[in-house]
Amino acid sequence: MTVTWATYEAEYFDRSEPYVQGAIVLDQEIAPRAGWSAPIRAGHVLTLVDVGGNQSGDCLIYDASDHDVRYSAQATLAAQRNAYLVDGSVLRDQEGAALMTVVGNEVERQDTIGGACSKESNTLRYGHHTLFHHACRENFLLEGAKHGLGPRDLVSNINWFMNVPVEADGTLGIVDGMSAPGKRVALRAERDVLVVISNCPQVNNPCNDFNPTPLRVIVTDPAVAA
């Protein structure tokens, strides 16, 4: 891989702390451009920290016991009748049932319209010279394969810390983020779920400030004292 200045930890990084206190179940850093996945038990809270600021965390959620039950952006948006995810948004499966709930959010709004980048869609968006740029779909496929998931299991995802406004005439797209180092989003699992995250490698648009940085994932169990 090409090593750039952004590969190195910068002074402005802020790794923050869990949004909801409790015993630490898991505390990991997702390296820039890497995939990550873990089962999250019902009641546990996943805090995702935007360590370097404006780093898109592409996220898919599955029922841990039945991967055919997965996050549905459409069911989520239709139920809340709003195109953006905010504090209190319930992340629903395709039958409308709650998978996780946003219990803390330090960014004005979160995206679930923009989808994941892929090598293939990069060729449409930026030209065929970008076919060999690493992409979220690669991370989803490889991380998903660890759990028996394949292309047929990829659906519209969430992009934590990414900013996708929709204008009056329907124009939509990815613009400069509204996040900053140390900003967090916290998700409570409403049942046992599998969470898959791609730390977005995109360097052709502002979703990462053209500068992929780490994400920190902390899972706490609020039922057990820290």
Partner: peptide
Amino acid sequence: NPGERLNVADTQKIPWQAY
């Protein structure tokens, strides 16, 4: 190849048009 199917996000994002 039914693994290649409608992707609503790309359908909105690539043309820069949600409608």
